[in-house]
Design a protein around this nucleic acid. Structure first.
Lengths: 205, 205
DNA sequence: TGTACATCAGTGAACGCGCGTTCACTGATGTAC
DNA sequence: TGTACATCAGTGAACGCGCGTTCACTGATGTAC
């Protein structure tokens, strides 16, 4: 569906794509409706044929992000094969891969400060993201003796926190700050040590 | 030094304090010079007697934050007494306490996107923050057999990442998102499991 | 196949607004004599 | 102690700008007959 003269044909998505790129470059509050419109080759006013306003455009970016994220996580976990542990570690890597590959989406999802109350669709998609991670954590934690098992939601919150922290502090973030290690390595070793602490990896491996 | 009629007496700090409160409420790009001035009881133009511009004001907030942060961390670690482990855990708690108690500073430091190249003073203060954490990690990791010991900078990066992740995802963050656990508990258990993975806490404790 | 018409996605100009910053100024303060 | 004066922290008005959004409009498209 290429753009033709007067009618664009796919403007809504073109605006989302433009917004994503701008958000990636300048942050969710650095991007402007006018820029997104211009970058899609269209007048600012045209935006309002497809979105209620600026915030709705950002919300659509975040929504699409959560959909992709959820799918990616689900696929990475893939039902726990070959082993729950391997699948879980793949999920961790997929997290970082997502942040790297879809930085605009990532920022819109986690740094835009969108209200979930005001965007029920978005809240739903975000919930699914969380559930995928929690399911993976729950499956894996079945291998922990029941009396030493932390709640799956806590387990997944730990992993999520470390992943997010690595992304924010060492993969994105302050210009001029040097990352001491490649973020991928940092996350993999971090999760490895954590899983060892849960007894899910043998001390000698 | 209370404010008197025409001359404020302590305007610079009053502006910083006002900015911090605004940054806490509306984020680093949501706050405006005019608001900060008004909240300090002064005309917007007066700001430029004390700061080169908007960004310099934010930078001063971040700078003061790093100073407080560094002092707090140093004090929490307190040379590793009574034990390296206890001191390290106190440092983790101090991290979260700082984020809670000085949210404006925290945001200015870690979410404002200030360039460290453009603010050498700030870069220096940020470096000190990092070094305090790294020293604590290095001291503690002396208790790990040398061949299994990760570099101290990696160790501290892991802890920092998890701390920052907990703060961003569960202590601050999206309106309407529910934290599954108190952030303090989340961080304490997370760090506990991680340290266990390093063999610094006995499996039966 | 051709024409009339409804639909709708875009335009272009304009709006009110609040922003960061500048400028010439003025009022208060502190110091030299 | 009293006065003249330099210093400097504040004022108030104004600037140019770009923002998000609105409005009446127009050009393109698809469909009924």
């Amino acid at each position: 569906m290429p753009k033709r003269g007067y009618h664009h044909g796919n403007l809504k998505q073109a605006l989302v794509d433009a917004a994503l790129q701008l958000i990636e470059q300048k942050g969710p509050s650095g991007f402007t409706v006018a820029e997104a419109a211009k970058s899609a080759g269209v007048t600012p006013a045209a935006v309002y044929r497809h979105f209620e306003g600026r915030e709705a455009l950002i919300a659509e970016c975040a929504l699409q992000g959560h959909r992709i994220f959820g799918d990616l996580m689900e696929h990475a976990y893939a039902g726990g094969h070959p082993s729950a542990l391997a699948a879980f570690e793949a999920t961790g890597r997929a997290y970082l891969a997502f942040a790297r590959k879809f930085p605009g989406h990532y920022v819109a999802m986690f740094e835009s400060g969108l209200s979930l109350q005001a965007n029920p669709d978005l809240a739903l998609a975000a919930q699914r993201s969380r559930e995928v991670l929690e399911t993976a954590a729950a499956k894996l934690s079945e291998h922990i003796p029941e009396d030493k098992r932390p709640p799956a939601s806590m387990f997944s919150a730990h992993i999520w926190a470390m992943s997010h922290g690595v992304v924010e502090l060492f993969a994105r973030g302050t210009p001029g700050a040097k990352a001491p290690f490649p973020p991928e390595d940092l996350l993999e070793t971090g999760i490895g040590i954590y899983l060892r602490g849960l007894g899910l990896i043998k001390p000698d491996s």
